[in-house]
């Protein structure tokens, strides 16, 4: 799952000339570093919901929960467990 989310973030949020500057892994801060802004986070949330057939309530799609791929994956897994 980590790889799928990383791949999505790379395609959706990084520009070609950013890619050499940004070393993206599961622990890279996404929001606090400015790679993903809170406004663009909406498409990431939609992608996760569609890809993993879950529904993420807005209050759980917080800046903290979305700040690294590791925390995003944890959130998704928790919701898959609930399903």
């Amino acid at each position: 799952m980590e790889d799928v989310v990383l791949e999505y973030i790379r395609n959706e949020y990084l520009d070609e000339d950013d890619e050499e500057d940004v070393d993206l892994d599961v622990n890279t801060p996404l929001l606090s570093s400015g790679i993903v802004d809170s406004f663009s986070m909406v498409s990431l949330k939609r992608f996760l919901e569609k890809e993993y057939s879950i529904s993420l309530p807005d209050e759980e799609a917080s800046a903290e929960a979305f700040d690294t791929v590791a925390s995003i994956v944890a959130l998704v897994k928790r919701h898959q467990g609930n399903a």
Partner: peptide, 27 residues
């Protein structure tokens, strides 16, 4: 919206009911 639009546009968009999405700057 383009990801680099001005802050006032971001505020305006937040106030409306439409769904929001963004695209990479000028891409």
């Amino acid at each position: 919206s383009d990801r680099l639009v001005h802050a006032s546009i971001v505020d305006g968009i937040r106030l409306c009911k439409a769904m929001t999405d963004t695209y990479k700057h000028a891409n």
